[in-house]
């Protein structure tokens, strides 16, 4: 077992229940673990939610955390994966003054090269959307901040795993 600290993506399949977020976040809190990012959405199974949680910790600790998450009544199954074992993305949005789009040639090049997308443009501002890895988003942020960013936000990581998740079979076995 590795003792080094790594980035792990924890995927938690749960019933859709008020209060479960509290229950899960409390498990991290009591061990003083900072959640790097958290995303909750529907999953491939109707009525089942999926938490995607990114944390930096040792594998030994992440295993213990998984055990304590799975123990929660409304958690169906929890998994953890390294970055290499997942396909993952984040999305960022940049709000920038519209005049820059016309005055600064450079910005258009940045948009093109970064593979980002203009969501909307009006007289005052335009909004740029960029999906990708964290470092790509950070690079774009650095490049644009020279010109001034009115607003910036970045989503939590979403990830799917390369390996199969046996979740549907588990639920089928119950029904």
């Amino acid at each position: 077992m590795s003792t080094g600290i790594k980035s792990y993506t924890i995927s938690v399949y749960t019933e859709n229940n008020i209060g479960l977020l509290n229950r899960i976040s409390a498990i991290f809190q009591r061990r003083h673990i900072n959640i790097e990012s958290l995303n909750i959405s529907v999953s491939e199974i109707e009525g089942v939610s999926r938490f995607t949680i990114v944390v930096n910790m040792t594998e030994e600790k992440v295993r213990k955390i998984i055990g304590q998450i799975e123990k929660q009544i409304e958690v169906i199954k929890a998994y953890y994966h390294t970055e290499e074992e997942t396909i993952y993305q984040e999305t960022a949005m940049f709000k920038i003054k519209s005049e820059l789009l016309f005055e600064e040639r450079q910005i258009q090049n940045i948009i093109k090269e970064s593979n980002s997308r203009i969501v909307t443009v009006n007289k005052e501002f335009f909004v740029l959307e960029k999906s990708g890895r964290r470092n790509e988003i950070e690079l774009l942020h650095r490049e644009l901040s020279v010109f001034g960013i009115l607003q910036f936000t970045r989503s939590g990581r979403i990830a799917v795993t390369k390996e199969r998740m046996e979740i549907s079979q588990m639920l089928a076995a119950f029904n």
């Binding site: 749960t14 019933e15 009544i73 958690v75 169906i76 119950f174 029904n175």
Partner: peptide, 10 residues
């Protein structure tokens, strides 16, 4: 009233 005999996530 019906007793509970199982919870699928548990």
């Amino acid at each position: 009233y019906e007793k509970c005999t199982g919870v699928r996530s548990y």
